[in-house]
Amino acid sequence: MILLQLFWTFLKIGIFTFGGGYSMVALIQNEVVEKHQWMTSCEFTDILAISQMTPGPMGINTATYAGYTAVVNSGLPVWEGVVGSLLASLAVIILPVIVMMIVYGYLSHHRDNPVVDMMFRILRITVVGLIAAAALLLLSEESFGVPGLNKQFIVSVVLFAAVFSLSYFKRTNPILLIVVSGIVGGIIYSF
């Protein structure tokens, strides 16, 4: 049952993803954390960390990992989790691929249609809001600790500010930032 639900959910996620991996992350987060509550926000953040650090498109990685976690969290065995992850990855690509194959010939000749052009322009603008919402939803106590003058919250805010500035202004490699933050956490919280 959850496998069917998973397939349907990721079909939707695939076809409504416009503008790259981060908007897919926003859709996945909304479906698997907020709507279906297949995992906690914390688990989802961990999945994102691993998806960003491993090879391949981030959208596919997140879908694969989230599919696995959703199934295993519902108490099913590992092999069904594997099936779930494969279903999620397949579902997320199948509709866009069909659309691509249909429009490939057509769109190359009708690129200048002003109506279609306006639609894509509005979509590009809207996706920014989608990702903003995902970021806001992830700013949770689960990931940052309870707000106040305690060790975890202060360290979290400092790490957040540092990583944001480095990645936005200096375009520092995200993998490096994740690895360093992990090392910092491992050291600070262990002593």
Binding site: G19, Y22, T45, L138, S156, F160, Y168, G182
Partner: peptide
Amino acid sequence: EHVFMGLRPAVVALIATPVFRMA
């Protein structure tokens, strides 16, 4: 768990970055 407590805020920051860049 300690390592992940450190990298979670970093991941959230990395989701916030493309908001401004894509804007």
